[in-house]
Design a binder for these strands. Sequence first.
DNA 1: CATATTAAGTGACGCATATCACATATTTGG
DNA 2: CCAAATATGTGATATGCGTCACTTAATATG
Lengths: 225, 225
Amino acid sequence: MKDCIDCAIRSRAVKTLTPEEFNIHRENCAELELEAGESIFKEGQLSSHIAYLKSGLAKIHKKGIKGSDQILKIVKPSHYIGLQSILLNKVHQYSSSVIEKSVVCYVDIHSFKDLITRNANFANELILHMCEDEMCYFNRFVNVHQKQINGRLADSILFFFDEIAHSNKFVIPLSRADIAALICSTRESVIRSLKDLIDVGAIKVQGKHFEVINKDLLISISNKG
Amino acid sequence: MKDCIDCAIRSRAVKTLTPEEFNIHRENCAELELEAGESIFKEGQLSSHIAYLKSGLAKIHKKGIKGSDQILKIVKPSHYIGLQSILLNKVHQYSSSVIEKSVVCYVDIHSFKDLITRNANFANELILHMCEDEMCYFNRFVNVHQKQINGRLADSILFFFDEIAHSNKFVIPLSRADIAALICSTRESVIRSLKDLIDVGAIKVQGKHFEVINKDLLISISNKG
DNA sequence: CATATTAAGTGACGCATATCACATATTTGG
DNA sequence: CCAAATATGTGATATGCGTCACTTAATATG
């Protein structure tokens, strides 16, 4: 049940809204609970809303010419997904799905655009978010190219440790094939690489349950590629 | 000599400014003419300005753990460079340099931030630009991973054809090593791949002068990776 | 609870491109 | 204009990881 006014996980952008603007925002969005694996939107689909991930985790993914999906980004709560909908092209250029049970709010594009043009602080917060994202894309682009698979896998495990779970024991709600899609590899290579990291004593793995045993070692593997 | 009011290549964002805002903007920026190879800003350098590429071409680049530079983006005129300066961290996270003779305006960060918060149309245009950029990053990320080197090289040649030169004869103002940095490869592999594209009759090359002889063939190579 | 389906793991092999070492060509600077 | 520096090009070799085919384990469904 939607309860925007008491929402503890409002985006920083939404926090800039006046009460009047907040009410407009609230009236123009619909909240949905999605199960793991369900789609937020699909590439090629007409875009009419911008999605806001209230809780849970999502991935942004896109098919390449080889027909295989690639995960472009793991989205944390309190983030917008699909801002490109505000562009002129009316079709989603990539897909988004949740990877664990999540709550997603869909915000009507026109109302969202209106908020941007009437509240510069809201727009400013979006710009800040997008700048942060750009930095992540750059770092990831460089790392994916210059690191070997163990370094890339270490990066991803550290991401879930530091930015999602904040704990040395956590679940990575991705299959081996999905982890491969995230780190630009194949599921067989991911399995072999996981084995390497286990063998050197950096992590313990049981299905999707991960435990970081030696974070410094993992960081070292990440740093040297 | 700075002549903002008659500037034919104002950004779409700047076009949204009121005359008053335009004057503030104008008073808070400095124009520089840079030669090919000169730096706009360097990674690690304190950021105090946002750069605007008035004319010429620039690249955004960053070193990876292997110590080698990677080109993250070729920047066309009428684009801002280094928007991440408006974030809290006061240091550039990547470098930017011009790749041909260019004119760059440096805009004071505080004045730029002020413009964002006082003019939502200006902010809106920035958001649109950043959304377009994000799409490019996603496409590039997927293509760099899923295409083999000939496809990636074809992509870059087509980029210079369609988005920079708008002509089948053009100069790519990059060394072979720089082309390699752009397409995630090495200079030897770029040379071999250029040879392949020449051999199949897609292009002609003389130093940095390129001629696309068979665009359809080049597109086909790009599409199939 | 049993069966079917999907995911994970393994071994063997192949390949696209990186690396290395060098020669040649071009550009730069005095 | 010439020497030095840098860029380009080439041949040979190495390698990290993808691919394929299969077996085993885990999960989903009726």
